[in-house]
Design a protein around this nucleic acid. Sequence first.
DNA 1: CTGTTAGCGCATTCAT
DNA 2: ATGAATGCGCTAACAG
Lengths: 342, 342
Amino acid sequence: MSITIKDVAKHAGVSIATVSRIVNNQPGFGKKTKEKVLKSIEELGYTPNAIARGLVGRETRTIGVLLPKVSGLFASKLLEGIETTARKEGYSVFVCHTDSKEDRSIQDLQVLKEKQVDGMIYASDQLSLAQGQLLEAMTCPIVFVSTQSLTHPFPYVKVDDYQAAYDGTSYLLTKGHEQIAFIGGEQDDLIAGKPRDKGFRQAMKDHGMPINEALMVYGDFRFQSGKKGLRQLLAAKTPFSAVFASSDEMAVGVLSEAYDKGISVPKDLAVLGYDNTMAAEMAIPPLTTIAQPLDDMGKQAVTLLLTIRENRGKAISNIEAEHEIVERKTVLLRKNTKGLFY
Amino acid sequence: MSITIKDVAKHAGVSIATVSRIVNNQPGFGKKTKEKVLKSIEELGYTPNAIARGLVGRETRTIGVLLPKVSGLFASKLLEGIETTARKEGYSVFVCHTDSKEDRSIQDLQVLKEKQVDGMIYASDQLSLAQGQLLEAMTCPIVFVSTQSLTHPFPYVKVDDYQAAYDGTSYLLTKGHEQIAFIGGEQDDLIAGKPRDKGFRQAMKDHGMPINEALMVYGDFRFQSGKKGLRQLLAAKTPFSAVFASSDEMAVGVLSEAYDKGISVPKDLAVLGYDNTMAAEMAIPPLTTIAQPLDDMGKQAVTLLLTIRENRGKAISNIEAEHEIVERKTVLLRKNTKGLFY
DNA sequence: CTGTTAGCGCATTCAT
DNA sequence: ATGAATGCGCTAACAG
C-alpha cells in the first residue's frame, strides 16, 4: 500500500484539503502549516497519485502518439521532438507503433481513449474509413504530423510535399541534370507519395523536360526498396545522370546499390534524398537532401495540440513546415558527372 | 462529458454492478441481461475509463521506459521491441528520453511513479546515487536493459560486453590483424564503456599482442565521435590495419572519415562495429559488426518485468542476451588489406 | 486560514 | 442473478 494524502494529513495533523492546497499551490494556508505539511511529505515520502487526480480533474497530462514504425530515423526524430516538447509542457507520451496495420491502429485508438489521453498526435499513414470514424468520435483534440487527412478536417503540421519535390527537382535541373530518375513512395499513398510524384513531374514539365516513364519507379521509403529502385532503373537501359529519391533511406539504398555496381556517386551519378535524417549525414558520400524539420515539426505538433486544447476550439490552423535543400556531396554540376548511358 | 457505466446501466435498466460484471466477464448475470447490456453499450458507444479502473484496481497496465535518447537507431530498435511485446500483453508504454541528464531522469522517475506505472524499464546510462535511491524506493518492479547497476541488484537483460568485445577482437586477430586500433565509449562508463575496453585488451593479451596506448581512443558512441576518433588515430602516426569501434555509429563515423581522407575500406583498413543497427546494413561498404539482438532484448525485458510482477517476487534472474558477429564487407583477411603505415 | 463533504468512474463486497 | 453500498486518492465547492 502506498502512502496517500490522508497519511500526510494525519501525520501533519491537518485535513486532507489543506494538504491538497499546499501540494497544488492553491491559496489558503499559513506559512507554519505549510512547513509542517511539507515536512510530513518529506518524511513520509509522499507522492501524489496522478491517477486519482486524473479521475477528478478530468485531465491526465498525457498524450498519445501513433507512429507507423518507431525504429527508423524518421519516426524517432519526430518522436524525440514530440517527447521533448511534451515534457517541457508537463505531459507524458504514450507511444504506439501501428506498424501500418489498420487493426493495430484501431486498437491503439481504443486504448488511448480508455486511458483518457488529453490529446493525440497521429503520424501514421493514410486513414481508412474506420480509423477516420474513430478519430471523429474522439473527444480529445487530434493533430496530424507529417501526414494529413483528405477526408477529415484534422489540423496538421507538415511540409508541402508537392512544393518540396518541385524544388528538389528544380535544384537538380539547375545543376544541369536533364535525365532525372525518380524513386517515389507507394503510388497509392495520396499523402506522402503522390504529391512528390506530382511535384517532380510538374517541375520537369515547367522546365521543358520530358518525363520518361522508364525512369519513374516506386518503393516503400525503406532502404531495400531504394536498392531495388536503382536496380530497376539500371535494367531500363535508359540514360540518366541523377536520381531523386523520396526518402533518405531509399537514397542511401541507391548509394549502396551504386557502390555494389561500381557506380561512383557523385561522379557517375547524382543522388538527391528527402528528409534529412541522420542517414543523410552518415552516408558515404554525405547525402544532399531536402530537409524536413522533423524535430521542430514534432514540437509544433504538440504546441498546436495544446493550443487547441486550451481554446477548446476546433480551430483548424494547419502549419506548413519549411523545407530546405541541404547540400552535401552527392550532387555535382552536370558537367562534372558522367551520367549513366547505354 | 463522456458516457459512463452509469449511463449504460440506466439505458439497459440494470445496476452498474451488472454492467461492470459483464464488461469484465465476471460470473453472475443472465444471458438475456448480457445481451441487453451489450446492446446499450453498443448504442451509447460506451468506453470504460481506464483511469477509474486504475484507481480502484490499483493497476494501470502501463509501463514506463527510460531511454537516454529516442532518436538514434539503437534506442529506437530497443523501444520497438519493448512496445511490440508490451502491446501484446495488454500494456501501454510511456517513453521518456532522459538525454543522459540526471535531473531529467529523476524527473521522469517521479512522473512515472505519480502516474502509477506497473513497471519500469531502464535503458539509460549509469545510475547516479540519487537515481539509485529513487529506484530503490519505487514500489513497482524495474528491469534494466542493455545496462545494469553495479550498486543496486536490479535484474537486467544485456549482452556480456566484455565477452563480446573479446570475441570481436579475437575475430580481427583471426583475420590476421595485429595492429588494431580501438575506439571505445566514455572511459568512465563502467557498464558499456569499460567492459568492452577490457575485453579488447584481454583478447590482445591472450593472443600475445601488445597494447599500444596510442591506438586506444574514446568517444561517446555517436557518429561524430567516430570521425574524430579516426582523426586522432591518424594523428598518432602509429601503424594499424584495423579499427574496432564500440558502436556502429562510431564505426560508420570512421568509414565516413576514411572516405574523406581517401582511405579505402576494407582495402586499406578493416573496420568492425558493435550493435548491428540499421546503420551497419546501410553503411558503405556494409559494416561487419557485433550484433546485439536489440528487439529481442526489448521483448525479454518486458517479459521479465511482467514475470516479476506476477510473482510479486524480486526474483533477480538476469538474462544474458546472445551476441554474434555478423560478417559483411568491412573486414578482410590481413593479407588483403594494406593497413595504415607511416 | 482551515475542515467537511461530495463526487470523479469503477470494481467489489454484501445483501437479497 | 442482481442491486445497494463502499471506497480507491484526490480536488473542489462550501462552511466555518
